[in-house]
């Protein structure tokens, strides 16, 4: 894909989502990242640690759409096209490998069980590099999650995807 076409993606919307954070999935996820801290599964332990609700482990925002994106909660104005999928789809059709290059989270506060979060994702960077005779296409997306009740920012997730042709 030409460099100019990639540059045109920057700023394009990728997703819009409303997510409900539930206790079972959060507790189960903590176990899956080998975290035995009881604050992630027992509300009494969470309270003792000074939290009003069970917090989620730091990498939870990466997976929470898989658990809490319920059809009836979704915004009516979801973007029709997913800019990242529109690029990766054709690239993958020609073969190659998808790699997760980098991941970054910026937290304004912990995510808690009981939260309803609204996220909007956009493409923040897109470029290609030649490496050892292969074309590496980099797409960086950022999803900003806000508290649906207050509108306050909660966490931003930056995802750097690489297609190695």
């Amino acid at each position: 894909m030409a460099e100019d076409d990639l540059k045109k993606l920057i700023g394009k919307p990728m997703s819009k989502s409303t997510v409900v954070v539930e206790r079972g999935p959060v507790s189960n996820f903590a176990v899956a990242v080998c975290d035995r801290n009881p604050v992630y599964r027992d509300p009494r332990a969470a309270k003792e640690a000074g939290f009003d609700a069970i917090p989620a482990p730091p990498t939870w925002p990466f997976v929470m759409q898989a658990w809490g994106e319920f059809a009836e909660e979704q915004p009516g104005d979801k973007p029709k096209a997913n800019a990242m999928a529109d690029v990766i789809g054709p690239l993958m059709a020609g073969g190659g490998l998808i790699l997760h290059g980098e991941q970054e989270f910026t937290y304004h506060r912990p995510v808690f069980v009981g939260d309803v979060l609204e996220g909007e994702g956009t493409v923040v960077d897109a470029y290609a590099k030649e490496s050892k005779g292969r074309t590496m296409t980099f797409i960086v997306t950022e999803t900003v999650w806000k508290d649906a009740k207050t509108g306050e920012p909660v966490v931003s997730s930056k995802f750097n995807l690489i297609h190695r042709g």
């Binding site: 975290d35 482990p57 730091p58 990498t59």
Partner: peptide
């Protein structure tokens, strides 16, 4: 993301759950 999660577990074991403000790998 399992690797990032495992490293994140060691991180929060040290600094305390809920105290991470930025985490990048």
């Amino acid at each position: 993301m399992f690797s990032m999660g495992l490293l994140g577990t060691a991180l929060t074991d040290y600094v305390g759950a809920g105290n991470v403000r930025h985490y990048q790998v």
